[in-house]
Design a protein around this nucleic acid. Structure first.
Length: 271
DNA sequence: CCGGACGCCTGTCGGC
DNA sequence: TGCCGACAGGCGTCCG
């Protein structure tokens, strides 16, 4: 489900409600996620105060005094802040109840998500240490993207979805960014020039900024920490719009499969 | 090193 | 109405 804008929207919803509050109780109903939830999480978290909620790529980092709880939403994960009295549903796997009566609840029907404790700085965790730059990091420059993509035969869409290249760009926003930049998603990464690389970076930033401002995209089940859907869905230019007229008014949006993922583009706008 | 396929899970939807 | 396959926002791993 969630790409960077949905994770960031979730983060922003949690921060004002839970920061500087202490954990009173932790309930883990299902440990079998992509990797097993850290054992005895209640012994680690109970009594600790949440100091900050950070984000790296699509990982949420709940920073406590003695370490960090790393949360990944996978495809269907949702983190919500609810009253601790709200009864749990079928796929509500983890509850973290704070001493002011609020409960941070992790729901994830497909269980591709993660809830992992690390005592060391999260950036050094195995899952995070090889990640590429954030989309707004100045290190993500046209020169960087151009140099990294030379000789690469993979489709540019797959290339920008590779977290070692740049983080946070999933299937929806890869499609959208390529449309903004006028680049065909199946084009070999190595055949994208420097000027197009610059347009692509600008496109990624513009699309992600706008999606965050709209509270993310809701296709099926995304809701933010307060239960609101994202409103970027109506701003999508190509994603899930096969057969519709592109905003250019001169062509119909096409659907193809690239790297086993649904891909959408305008044959008139993207080359 | 690179690229492509696969698997992990459950829910939903469309076609027959 | 029911069944069955395809598909879904991620990503680590395996194989050639």
């Amino acid at each position: 489900m969630p790409e960077l804008p949905e994770v960031e929207t979730t983060r922003r919803g949690i921060v004002p409600l839970l920061t500087n509050h202490a954990v009173e109780r932790v309930t883990v109903r299902e440990r079998r996620l992509r990797r097993p939830v850290t054992r005895n999480l209640h012994l680690i978290l109970e009594g600790q105060t949440l100091r900050a909620v950070d984000r790296r790529a699509k990982y949420l980092l709940l920073v406590f005094d003695s370490g960090t709880l790393i949360v990944h939403l996978g495809m269907t994960g949702v983190l919500r802040v609810l009253s601790s009295a709200t009864p749990p549903g079928k796929h509500d796997h983890v509850d973290i109840v704070f001493n002011h009566g609020h409960c941070l609840r992790f729901r994830d029907p497909r269980r591709f998500g993660l809830v992992l404790w690390t005592a060391a700085p999260a950036a050094r965790h195995k899952l995070l240490k090889h990640l590429g730059p954030e989309p707004w990091d100045p290190a993500l420059s046209a020169d960087y993207l151009y140099a990294l993509s030379r000789g690469r035969k993979a489709a540019i869409k797959n290339f920008i979805m590779d977290g070692r290249v740049v983080v946070g760009v999933g299937n929806i926003y890869a499609n959208e960014s390529l449309h903004v930049a006028g680049i065909h998603p199946a084009r070999a990464a190595g055949r994208v020039g420097r000027a197009s690389a610059q347009l692509l970076i600008a496109g990624i930033r513009q699309v992600l900024d706008n999606a965050i401002a709209a509270g993310g995209t809701t296709l099926r089940d995304f809701v933010s920490a307060d239960g609101q859907p994202g409103y970027f869905t109506r701003s999508l230019r190509v994603y899930a719009r096969a057969g519709q007229i592109c905003a250019c008014g001169r062509a119909t949006i096409r659907h193809v499969v690239i790297g086993q993922r649904s891909s959408f583009y305008c044959p008139r706008c993207q080359h």
